Amino acid sequence: MWNDRRILELFGIELPIIQAPMAGANLSEMVIAVSEAGGLGSLPCALLSPDKAREELAKIRRKTSKPINVNFFCHHSPVFDVEREAAWKQHLKDYYLELGLDPGMETAPSARAPFDETFLGLVEEFRPEVVSFHFGLPHQELLKRVKDTGAKVLSSATTIDEARWLEDQGCDAIIAQGFEAGGHRGIFLTDDISTQVGTMALVPQVVDAVKVPVIAAGGIADARGIVAALALGASAVQLGTAYLFTPEATISSVHRQALKGAGAEKTALTNVFTGRPARGIVNRVMREIGPISELAPAFPLAGGALSPLRQKSEPLGSGDFMSLWSGQAALLSRELPAGELTRRLADEASERLRSR
């Protein structure tokens, strides 16, 4: 049923559907379900310790022999700036007081681990069929050793220049991440988000610019989006927000409720939770101090000062101070188990393609 079989053959999968790796939102259970259904399940490791990542990979390998993707961030860890952190906490002072917290309390810096020798060791140990990166690629020596395991390498491009750079560096396929996508932008050649492009405009331009297969991501949540992306030249699609509605998603009840609520269609790019632009449902802290704040510490440190506010308010049912990551197509999503969702999306897309 799939005219362009390059991704299917490259990864050894049956369906051109990739479950987006969503740090903090999915673990092995979702990966297993999607891969067993014929798609490509993805394990995000940016928020996992090496020990936790090993535990999750071991679970996956015990329960499925199907291809999987393991995802890493490859940002540069920033130097902690005491003055900037103090200014950020001062900016949040009134919220601390409102919640009965001491504005001068010590807060642990927020952390997301970049790809390094330790994570490389896990790739060499478990040999996932696909390894994907966000924010560019690791340096060439690490990348070479990843490819030496036999893994196919992916990374996200938000511009044509980024796509060409990724191809030149040896990516086997490129994820064209449109402006509609939830979570962190994969932008890495510039800090300017004002000229970021939507999925339906970005995909055909990236397809024309590179020779490797292209995966469309951003604003795709149903068969109509899949068929449209394939028509524009994508070899496969990557869906994230659609999988947040599955029981396998590890998001909080507050996040689930926000995704299903009346405000789910209102998303914006914000840097207040981590220090890098990411798309989420607009909440109180985004409205009042953001969504983009020049005071937010460098990625990923901004979240440290917000953590006590979330810890105090979330148990009360409030999403005022937490990241509610979501793409722009949340209202097109359905509540189904991850495996069933994968198969149903493929079946519905196939039916639409047959009837064209």
Rank of each mutant, 00 (worst) to 15 (best):
Val237Pro: 02
Leu232Tyr: 13
Ala217Asn: 14
Ala216Arg: 12
Met200Gln: 08
Gly225Ser: 09
Gly198Pro: 04
Ala242Phe: 02
His255Ile: 03
Ala229Cys: 11
Ala223Thr: 00
Val207Ala: 09
Ser252Met: 00
Pro213Glu: 03
Val207Trp: 01
Thr241Glu: 01
Val207Leu: 09
Val203Asp: 05
Gly240Phe: 08
Ala217Arg: 12
Ala234Arg: 11
Asp208Arg: 15
Ala231Gln: 09
Ala231Trp: 10
Ser252Asp: 01
Thr246Tyr: 00
Gln205Ser: 13
Tyr243Lys: 05
Val254Trp: 11
Val207Pro: 05
Ala209Asp: 05
Leu232Met: 14
Gly233Glu: 03
Thr250Gly: 04
Gly233Arg: 02
Val207Tyr: 05
Ala217Trp: 10
Ile215Arg: 04
Met200His: 01
Phe245His: 11
Ile215Tyr: 14
Glu248Arg: 05
Thr246Gln: 00
Ile215Val: 15
Lys211Leu: 03
Ala234Lys: 08
Glu248Val: 11
Arg224Phe: 11
Leu232Gln: 08
Gly198Cys: 05
Val254Cys: 07
Ala221Thr: 12
Ile220Phe: 11
Ala234Leu: 15
Ile220Tyr: 10
Ser235Pro: 12
Val206Cys: 06
Val210His: 13
His255Lys: 02
Ile226Gly: 08
Leu230Glu: 07
Ala201Tyr: 04
Gly233His: 11
Pro247Lys: 01
Lys211Pro: 01
Asp222His: 04
Phe245Val: 09
Gln238Lys: 04
Gly219Ala: 05
Val206Pro: 10
Val227Leu: 07
Ala228His: 10
Ala242Tyr: 02
Gln205Asn: 11
Ile226Ser: 15
Val207Thr: 03
Ala216Ser: 15
Met200Val: 12
Ala221Asp: 08
Gly219Gln: 04
Ile226Ala: 09
Gly240Lys: 13
Asp222Glu: 04
Ser235His: 07
Asp222Asn: 15
Gly233Gln: 09
Leu202Asn: 03
Arg224Lys: 13
Ile220Lys: 14
Val203Thr: 12
Val203Gln: 02
Ala231Arg: 14
Ser252Cys: 04
Ala223Arg: 01
Thr250Gln: 07
Gly219Thr: 14
Ala216Glu: 04
Ala236Trp: 05
Val214Tyr: 14
Ala221Met: 06
Gly233Asn: 04
Ala201His: 08
Leu232His: 13
Arg224Val: 14
Ser235Ala: 15
Gly233Tyr: 07
Val210Gly: 04
Ile226Phe: 13
Leu232Thr: 04
Ala236Leu: 04
Arg224Met: 07
Val237Leu: 12
Leu230Pro: 05
Met200Leu: 14
Val237Thr: 11
Ala242Val: 03
Thr199Asn: 10
Gln238Leu: 10
Ile215His: 06
Ile226Trp: 05
Gln205His: 12
Ala228Gln: 10
Leu244Ala: 10
Ala249Ser: 15
Ser253Pro: 00
Thr250Cys: 08
